[in-house]
Simulated scan of single mutants.
Amino acid sequence: MPLILPLLLAVLLFCIGVYGVLARRNAITLLMSFELMLNAVNLNLVAFDAWRLDGLATGQTLAVFVITLAAAEIGLGLAIVLLLFRGHGHVDADAARDLVEQDATEQRKGAAT
């Protein structure tokens, strides 16, 4: 198989992930978009490893490392989303950013009095 086919698929996956990060407001959709981008990177790593034909399998080793990193990221991200939903009743990323700024402002006002 030519190298260009997996690379085009990886570019397509990465572009879909970037669109999801830039256009969506839901935190779950953001996490899924990050996963799509990481899977595109994994596809590139494995494709270049198969293309190089060395015996070290460095691309596959790095892909396993990226999968481990993605699992840790999704676990932490889902915990944050669950706490956000429990505390505020929504998972809107922009509103969560506004809530953090309001909480910090309220704490400053409470400390001043």
Rank of each mutant, 00 (worst) to 15 (best):
L31Y: 01
L13M: 11
P2V: 14
P2A: 13
D94G: 15
A95V: 10
D94T: 13
R108F: 13
L36M: 15
L69Q: 13
Q102M: 13
A40P: 03
M1K: 15
V100G: 12
G55C: 00
V81F: 02
Q102C: 06
N26P: 02
L53Y: 12
L5K: 15
L62F: 04
M32P: 11
N26F: 03
A79T: 14
L12N: 11
P6T: 08
L3A: 02
N42K: 12
A63D: 01
V66S: 05
L83F: 12
V81M: 03
L3N: 05
G20P: 04
I28W: 12
S33E: 10
I80F: 03
L53T: 11
D92W: 05
A93S: 15
L31W: 00
A96M: 14
L31D: 01
T68R: 13
D94K: 13
L78R: 14
Y19T: 09
V21D: 01
G55R: 02
G110W: 14
G77T: 06
V64Y: 04
R52L: 09
L56P: 06
A72K: 01
L30N: 04
Q102S: 06
V46H: 00
I74E: 10
L31T: 01
L31G: 01
G17T: 09
E35G: 11
L5W: 11
L83V: 05
G110E: 14
L69M: 05
E35C: 09
A71D: 10
L3S: 04
G20E: 03
L82D: 10
F85H: 15
T105W: 13
D103E: 10
A57N: 08
V100Q: 07
L56T: 01
T58S: 04
A23H: 05
S33W: 02
S33F: 01
E106P: 06
Q60I: 10
D54G: 06
I4N: 13
A95K: 12
N26W: 04
D103G: 11
V91F: 08
L36R: 07
M37Y: 05
L82N: 14
L56Q: 07
A72L: 07
Q60F: 03
